[in-house]
């Protein structure tokens, strides 16, 4: 019998992984309800919080609540899926396949970005409904594009985080510590410039810090964020995102080797 020639490709594996993430979601659509409630709550809280604080409070509220409801999913969604792979025992056959695990993660990241954007959309709709009209956006198209980019930059950090979940079953523990610090530190809710000065260098390690600052420059006339302004913000976001992707590419190889050495793939 002729053996089949393997025609695996990274793109195909990424799409297969995206597809299985969607199928698993559709198999359990009751998750839709909690994942819709959170953005609604964030939107209402943020609306109350920023109400009356200047002419662009709506944009502040949308950005704050939007990021709040999206960052978790985007940042940790793929790591969580990996810990599920451990639990289901599917990590072993996946690692045993010719596909590098990174591309399985990328498929899930795409799904997380998509569902994160869906959460963002809910926030937008709720705040617009609460305030009786859309916010004044100087450049709606630029805003939308930059918004998606911020999500992708967040996802690039998520890919690196996911490596920890492959590395060890204790990753969830590490995540819980970092969680709160991360979303305050990157300025998801408040602009980072409001934080004590010493925290800024740490914040700058994360691409969303740059991206969000750029987003506020774009959406809020007269916004005073990082002194270097919009274009350097954008450059910083791009640079840090690329750095995370490069880190992901190089550590995944090593992480896969580490787990083969440890033999802890089926532990959860």
């Amino acid at each position: 019998m002729e053996p089949v020639r393997s025609e695996f490709s990274r793109g195909r594996s990424t799409l297969a992984s995206l597809r299985i993430a969607i199928l698993q979601f559709l198999a359990d659509p009751q998750w839709l309800i909690p994942s819709m409630i959170a953005p609604v709550v964030f939107a209402l809280v943020s609306y109350e919080l920023f109400r009356g604080s200047g002419p662009y409070f709506l944009t502040y509220a949308i950005l704050g609540a939007g990021m709040m409801s999206m960052w978790g999913q985007t940042l940790y969604g793929s790591g969580w899926a990996t810990s599920q792979d451990r639990e289901f025992g599917t990590l072993e056959p996946t690692i045993q396949s010719p596909t590098p695990y990174l591309y399985v993660i990328l498929g899930r990241v795409l799904w997380n970005v998509l569902s994160g954007l869906f959460g963002g959309l809910i926030v937008y709709v709720v705040i617009v409904a609460a305030s009786g009209g859309p916010p004044a956006l100087p450049d709606p198209l630029g805003f939308a594009l930059l918004f998606v980019f911020v999500m992708l930059s967040l996802a690039s950090v998520g890919v690196v985080f996911a490596a920890f979940y492959v590395y060890t079953r204790y990753a969830g523990f590490i995540q819980n510590i970092g969680e709160f610090a991360f979303y305050v530190g990157t300025g998801c809710m408040f602009p980072v410039v409001l934080l004590p000065f010493w925290t800024n260098p740490i914040s700058l390690v994360f691409p969303p810090t740059w991206g969000l600052d750029a987003l506020r420059y774009l959406a809020i006339p007269g916004y005073r964020g990082f002194g270097w302004g919009f274009w350097l913000d954008l450059l910083g976001a791009l640079g840090t995102t690329l750095a995370y992707l490069a880190i992901a590419g190089s550590i995944f190889h090593r992480v896969e080797r580490h787990v083969l050495e440890e033999g802890n793939l089926s532990q959860y």
């Binding site: 490709s9 594996s13 799409l15 992984s17 199928l23 599917t90 072993e92 396949s97 399985v104």
Partner: peptide, 20 residues
């Protein structure tokens, strides 16, 4: 070792893609 919430066929499709 299997994705329980989806069908047997979808499990095979997924791994067929990963295995090439």
């Amino acid at each position: 070792g299997l994705y329980n919430r989806i069908s047997g066929r979808e499990n095979l499709r997924y791994f067929a893609d990963l295995y090439g």
